[in-house]
């Protein structure tokens, strides 16, 4: 079975539609969304509807959690605070109910899917280096973990007896005696200096992990954000990929 995974769409409809049409051409069996469908971007409602329609699994992200009022935005930066408020106003009750049904994680056989970290998914811990990865591996029961949250494609590998290794996200085939935490990058707001939308496919038969980057209409996404009155910083970063 081939699974396509998208994450951190952040209300970027242009990026989402570009990625979905690319996935359509790749003959996958199912699409999973690892959370943060909303927040930052100008089209949260449409993105939620599209993801709900096309994905067999949609996980809770911290932006969803904040929008439904379960997470304090105290620690958020100003742009994020403004965007949470703006997004709340842009969503209907139906969307809020939809979000409330999103699970924190999903496990099947030796695969685990989560937005941020297997270490207490509702606490939204970042996995940005091998030290944080070591903690996450302690909480991971499965062999392969796919996550998002940091917007940076990355691969953390833990082999028996050794400390975790870290690599930048790229196509690879997991070794059998190794556990991996695979950050699939971001569809709607990449932060690895590559502004193209990102998604990952995983083939459960061959174990191939493939990262795909997709060009999309960044200018339109930016214009819509500015028209919506969202902070300029949020739209500017889309063009830089940071």
């Amino acid at each position: 079975m081939r699974i396509a995974m998208i994450s951190d769409i952040h209300g970027n409809l242009e990026a989402l539609t570009a990625v979905l049409s690319q996935i359509e051409q790749q003959e996958v069996d199912t699409i999973y969304c690892l959370g943060d469908v909303i927040g930052y971007g100008a089209d949260p409602a449409t993105c939620l509807d599209l993801v709900d329609k096309h994905c067999d699994l949609v996980l809770m992200g911290n932006h969803e959690y904040a929008v439904i009022g379960y997470l304090s935005t105290e620690s958020y930066n100003d742009s994020a605070k403004i965007s949470v408020k703006w997004t709340q106003a842009a969503l209907s009750d139906r969307h809020i109910q939809l979000i409330k049904g999103f699970p924190f994680d999903h496990a099947k056989d030796d695969l685990y899917f989560v937005h941020a970290s297997p270490n207490n998914p509702g606490r939204w811990h970042y996995i940005l280096d091998t030290k944080q990865a070591a903690v996450a591996f302690e909480h991971l029961k499965q062999r392969l973990c796919f996550c998002g949250h940091s917007h940076v494609p990355a691969i953390f590998a833990e082999s028996p007896g050794g400390p975790p290794r870290e690599k930048v996200g790229h196509d690879f085939v997991p070794n059998e005696d190794t556990r991996y935490i695979i950050n699939i990058g971001s569809t709607g707001q990449p932060r690895d200096y590559d502004p193209r939308a990102c998604f990952v496919t995983f083939d459960t038969d061959t174990s191939d992990v493939v990262y795909t980057r997709v060009e999309y209409d960044i200018a339109t996404a930016q214009r819509k954000m500015l028209d919506a009155g969202l902070p300029g910083f949020l739209s500017e970063r889309l063009a830089v990929g940071r």
Partner: peptide
């Protein structure tokens, strides 16, 4: 090489 016992692991067929 491809396996974990290498110093530089390149996970590719």
């Amino acid at each position: 090489g491809r396996t974990n016992d290498n110093d530089i692991v390149l996970e590719n067929r």
